[in-house]
Design a protein around this nucleic acid. Structure first.
Length: 405
DNA sequence: ATGTAC
């Protein structure tokens, strides 16, 4: 039987297994995977998902298991970034014909966009009660962290909880194959997670310099167990991941309340919503060994575990169930993956292209979202086919409304 | 992705 993945053996490193059959992979991404494979702390092999593409330090769409050490830049700065989705009892025909007012109401209810100095655009001016309650839960561990790392206090933290952000972060209303309405959203740990990531990436680089480590790439600097800041990083990254998960829960609640206020028909939202990180690190057992697994643009896919693989603004998204494939460290892709940079997309496509590609979706179609045009992403169907031994599709979702930051 | 500096 042929392998479901491509096997590459970089000289002086662990093997790389790529679930990329029928999907393009940039040579630069291969080089970057090989760099990570040469680190002495990597366990067994590296897994590349079908949406793999070049990132900072580590490749987006990769799973890197490490022994008694973590590479902060492999986790990245968008710590805890991920997806949340929930099915409702609403049906397509319960939605209004014109979705513009609903989009405007969601944009009004959930802070989104940039948070430049002195102006609260993407942040709460006065966080509502549920946000303050959630912050009260997060605050003690954050305060403890700030005692040892005071610069982290100078961040947007409490006012960013329950807010969307920018770029590819979005909120969608979707229909599944049975015309049931779903809510779905994509966001992370906002400013404070970014500051934590940046801070510890810097500390890891200083640590590598002190130890005169010979690294294939400075962005692959790692912190080892016993290093001065290792424990702090583990606590900080875990805190940011909790912040991100709570951030998504709060936005989902806000979204549900907003739709309830606008749609006359009463409806229920499933209690067991899916809420999964795709940029994170955690302790796991693989091949009988306790390891740190860093998923950068990858989702956990243990047997039976539900995950979310979104397509682009105009494409379908998938609710998936993990098959627990041990060779992928029980993981799957986090999306379609880009085929071109944001700048390339803005050069190549016009507003007319964007209008055509997002037909039937109530969303922004202006010059500032062309970098998110569906053609800038890989074909989601090819991506799904390449990982058929990692996940099975449970639901297929098509967006009818999309809010971008 | 985010915030800030250029």
């Amino acid at each position: 039987m042929s392998l479901s993945y491509e096997l590459v053996q970089p000289e002086g490193g662990v093997p790389i297994k790529l679930w990329t059959r029928g999907v393009p992979v940039e040579p630069e991404a291969r080089q970057q995977l090989a760099n990570a494979a040469r680190l002495p702390i990597v366990f067994k092999h590296i897994a590349a998902m079908p949406d793999v593409h070049l990132g900072v330090g580590a490749t987006v769409g990769s799973v890197i298991p490490t022994l008694k050490a973590i590479i902060p830049a492999a986790v990245g700065v968008d710590i805890g970034c991920g997806m949340m989705a929930a099915k409702t009892t609403l049906r397509a025909e319960d939605l209004p014909d014109q979705l513009g007012p609903l989009r405007a109401a969601i944009e009004q209810a959930v802070p989104h966009g940039r948070t430049p100095r002195g102006r609260d655009v993407g942040a709460w001016e006065h966080p509502p009660e549920p946000v303050d309650q959630a912050w009260a839960q997060l605050a003690p561990d954050f305060d403890a962290l700030c005692e040892r790392h005071p610069r982290l206090r100078q961040t947007n933290n409490r006012k960013h909880l329950g807010t969307l952000g920018t770029g590819n972060h979005f909120i969608e209303v979707c229909l599944d194959e049975a015309d049931l309405v779903w809510f779905m959203l994509h966001s992370g740990s906002r400013g404070v997670g970014n500051a934590i990531g940046t801070h510890f990436i810097e500390l890891a680089k200083q640590d590598a310099e002190r130890h005169q480590r010979n690294l294939p790439d400075q962005d692959l600097a790692y912190l080892e167990e016993g290093a001065e800041y290792f424990g702090d990083y583990v606590r900080a990254v875990s805190w940011a991941q909790n912040f991100a998960m709570k951030n998504r829960e709060l936005m989902m609640a806000q979204l549900v309340a907003t739709v309830r206020a606008l749609i006359p028909k009463p409806f229920e939202v499933q209690v067991e919503a899916v809420n999964c990180h795709h940029n994170y690190v955690q302790r796991e057992q693989h091949f009988g060994q306790e390891v740190f697994v860093t998923r950068k643009g990858a989702v956990s896919a243990r047997r039976g575990q539900l995950g979310i693989i979104p397509g682009s603004m105009g494409a379908r998204s998938y609710i998936v169930r993990g098959l627990g494939n041990p060779e992928s460290f029980e993981s799957c892709s986090h999306g379609a993956g880009r085929v071109m940079s944001r700048n390339q997309a803005k050069k190549r496509f016009t507003v007319d292209d964007q209008v055509r590609a997002t037909q039937g979706v109530e969303c922004r179609k202006d010059a500032d979202v062309i970098d998110e045009i569906p053609m800038a992403y890989k074909d989601i169907d090819a991506v799904m086919a390449a990982q058929s031994d990692l996940v099975e599709v449970v639901h297929t979702l098509k967006q009818v409304l999309c809010v971008k930051g």
